[in-house]
Amino acid sequence: MIIGKNIVKEFGDPPHRILHDLSFVIQDGEFVSISGRSGSGKSTLLYIISSLDFPSSGQVLFDDEDTSLMSVEHIHEFRTNHVGFIFQFHYLLPELTGLENVLLPPRNIDRVDEFRDRALELLKTMDVSKVADKLPSQMSGGEQQRVAIARALIMKPKYLFADEPTGNLDSANGEVVMNILKSINKERGTTLCLVTHEEEYAAMAQREIYLIDGRMSERG
């Protein structure tokens, strides 16, 4: 369970407040979308929830553990083992093949061989087995994003965070990616937090957090 308590985020000097005293609970296995207009603070909130960033004040608790109190080693271990990220721009390492990209998180803990079969299986599930030995430059945008999803899932994370995963794809590929994410949430019970500005995809979530100028308006 993820609990957000009075989250405030400010940037700059003098401080400009992006998020205003947000509190929420995301249950295990829940699919929550964060949507809003451009500049509403939805990506900032996702980064804070996912431990990539920290609030100016307030707390984010993962199963009662405050991320801002975790040691550097612990937060990296936490990200490797419990969190999966999917970004809008895929962010695959261009010099690595599809399979090598998927195996990046196990490489961080020196367990590549142990996860090789799972990586191949995930690529198959995502229907991108054929790009296992190809470099990102030889893949289409949709294929790259599916490889990125496989990478996010390789460590069987409890939490999956996706920041506009369809934002850089055409509608057909966008739909494929959204279906994959939804099935991951449903079949594997992975908690899914999705940032999107597309209402159609936001509506696929069990619950929607709608942000207006950094203030929450929950609906769903």
Partner: peptide, 16 residues
């Protein structure tokens, strides 16, 4: 830079 960001978000610590 963005690849470094990916590695960091995956859990690669600064030391690595």
């Amino acid at each position: 830079k963005k690849e470094i960001a990916i590695l960091r978000s995956i859990g690669f610590p600064p030391k690595k």
